[in-house]
Design a protein around this nucleic acid. Structure first.
Lengths: 212, 212
DNA sequence: GACTTATGGATAGTTAGGCTATCCGATATC
DNA sequence: GATATCGGATAGCCTAACTATCCATAAGTC
């Protein structure tokens, strides 16, 4: 497959494919001569994955690069989860102030009740803290009161996520996707899917509640 | 409160506040003379809300503008949900191809089982279709097999979301937040919070599954 | 085997978004 | 009255994600 074909097949412009090659989102093709290269189905699949991460997942090119690097180098699915979580979360706020302290105590409690381990430096922890602190600063207590119930549902969702991963080959045969690949896709696109389902469900529930 | 004070209180630079005023993210202050203005707590609250939408929610300035416009003009909470959903979702892909057709059939079925109404033009529907179609194109069937279970959990999450809204005043007194305000915050930050909880739960479940 | 076309890589340019900095005339404050 | 500050208008800056142009080399075409 030549680049033009890869482009036609994927709908991604040639110039953009070249850009992705430069940015290491796509591995280089197999050289057939000093300035010619061939691509195969794995490149097509990777390209589609990258577009999904960027378009649906809303990742930046830099985050997507970390993701694919993780896919290529992760020893197993558990490891790639950590890498993927690190890649996906950009830490933003200051990590001080009374609302953060308060959020920390709250999250500790929830984690204890649910058996979660709050590894220090875990980006998901920071994300949760930032969000909880912001809820507090915006004076929205009702969500906090139900945090435990949300956590319980998150547990159920995570179980589904993981259940979808079992039954995949641990390492991938040349053209088959592995658990690692599936973990990344499931994590990034899973967020988008669940958010969409939640909106549909919210609309349903809202119509019942406000428009009886 | 003068602009400098608003800036100090919120941590947002004066130049940025001026920018937000230009972009209609913040209503103008009360004029005390042709070129002087005063701000109050409502401006401070709005400013914090905007920063939360941008930083935690990851919205663009344009999306945030639609959100606050919705807050200011929505007749009730059900209406603002629709506005907010429209503001939050940028439609991206082409809406054709066999995977979209397939996704449409699948989603119809799920919606029927859960009592959801798929209003045409609903952006959440498009988002769900895009995501499902992408899953299909990336050859990840396992998630699809569990779509119904995800939908069930989305129902439960949405119920929690809505439960948090009841008990708020329908219209807001000058300095109190209304259901409408809470609906927006809950929707945007709710996504971030749930995503974070899901990550923590995934890590827990993953450790149990892959590192027994 | 000449000739047109396409290819891959390097480099530079473009566009949009989100601020940030500079002016300036008009208050406010001492 | 002197000085500092304010709000508004305008222009500039920086990053991210592409996109377009060159050009020497290979491929396909008769």
């Amino acid at each position: 497959m030549r680049m033009a074909e890869l482009s036609a097949e994927s709908g991604v412009p040639v110039a953009t494919i070249k850009y992705y090659l430069r940015e290491d989102l796509l591995p280089p093709g197999a050289r057939t001569s000093p300035n010619q290269a061939r691509y195969d189905r794995s490149h097509l699949h990777r390209l589609r994955l990258v577009r999904a991460l960027l378009d649906i997942g809303g990742l930046s090119v830099a985050q997507a690069r970390e993701m694919v690097a993780g896919i290529d180098s992760a020893p197993d699915a558990h490891a790639v989860l950590g890498t993927a979580q690190a890649a996906i979360s950009t830490v933003r706020g200051r990590r001080d102030g009374e609302s953060h302290v308060w959020a920390g105590g709250l999250l500790d409690e929830v984690a204890r009740r649910h058996g979660w381990s709050l590894t220090p430096g875990n980006p998901a922890v920071d994300l949760a803290l930032d969000t909880l602190a912001t809820f507090a600063e915006l004076e929205h207590p009702e969500l906090v009161a139900r945090l435990d119930e949300y956590a319980g549902l998150a547990d159920r969702v995570a179980e589904l996520d993981l259940a979808g991963l079992s039954g995949r080959p641990e390492r991938e045969a040349p053209e088959r996707k592995s658990v690692v690949d599936a973990a990344v896709v499931g994590m990034v696109l899973g967020d988008a899917l669940f958010a969409a389902l939640r909106r549909l469900a919210q609309e349903h529930a809202s119509a019942r509640m406000f428009r009886p």
